[in-house]
Amino acid sequence: MTQIKKFFPYLISVLAAFLVVGILLWALGFNPVKAYQTILFTSFRTPNGFVQTLLKWIPLTLTALAFTVPLSSGKFNIGAEGQMLVGAIGATAVGILFKDLPPALLLPLVVLAGMLAGSFWGLIAAWLLYQFNINEILSTVLLNFISFALVDFVATGPWRDPAAGHPTTIPIGANGFLPMLVKNPPLHSGIILAVVVAIAVYIFTSKTTSGYELLVTGANPRASKVHGIDTRKMFLFSLVIGAAVAGLAGVIEVAGTHHRLIEGLHSNFPTLGLIIGLMARGKNQAVPFVAFFISILEVGGSAMQRTIMVPVQIVLIAEALILIFILLSDIIKRRQK
């Protein structure tokens, strides 16, 4: 009963957002019922649709966790974008430099390099916070811009693929590709990594003393410090872990999907990741489920554009409205008290 009560505001928020967007579609002269059928059922109608949904789910879950893990300690990581890109660069560099290594060596190296590169990008912001108390929101956002330039530099430098019309590197060694789980439609094993990370985050935050320290630091840093928890270390640690997870998202895009570094490979995943993290109210264990829901919307949205010519941006509007309504429901709940 209490569980249903808890979910009720979410349900209302989603329905209200759909209602508003439905009116918008109708006013624009589209058939809202047909549009929603496409949005909600594309993922489940064909195997390809479902695989597409899973492929979106991977980076969405990881970039959302990159936001919510530091948020557990009360720190805002707005830099998943940059950390994902730098992670992708790290994976690409190792994948190209050591392309002749056997798969048993190269694949773990690619994954490790990407995660390390991503966490290094987070470490810069975390260290500035630890040492000089520089606001992590500012530093992580600003580091995003540097990462864009860094991707351009690598993708147009010596590793440039001359055949491509867009800033792109040559492919990494085939031994560094993530193996396929299903050939057709193609589903790579990045999903296993994402599931493992999501479970690991859940176990860490709910079962270990360090995870407990992370959560209580977020609940009240001063009281945590008074009770012997090194809160500054917790801030540092949570930002670096979050960045490593974002780095892994970059790795999977390179080693699983594109097999090379492409400018713009982060798509809008990190931004949606933020929205997912907020919709999940920062709860790590809720992130995978919210991410799955958003993946359905994303896949359905592109299908809708193809079949009934509704611009895909409509889906973004719906997602933004859902978030706004959820935040509104918080305020209403507080008023009722």
Binding site: G218, A219, A223, I229
Partner: peptide, 24 residues
């Protein structure tokens, strides 16, 4: 601690979380 709201208590965590703070 003297100042319970800032130094002693976690408003946003459960009673159980609060009861083990420091001794976890």
């Amino acid at each position: 601690p003297e100042d319970r709201l800032s130094d002693g208590f976690l408003n946003k965590a459960s009673v159980a979380h609060n009861l083990i703070l420091g001794y976890h």
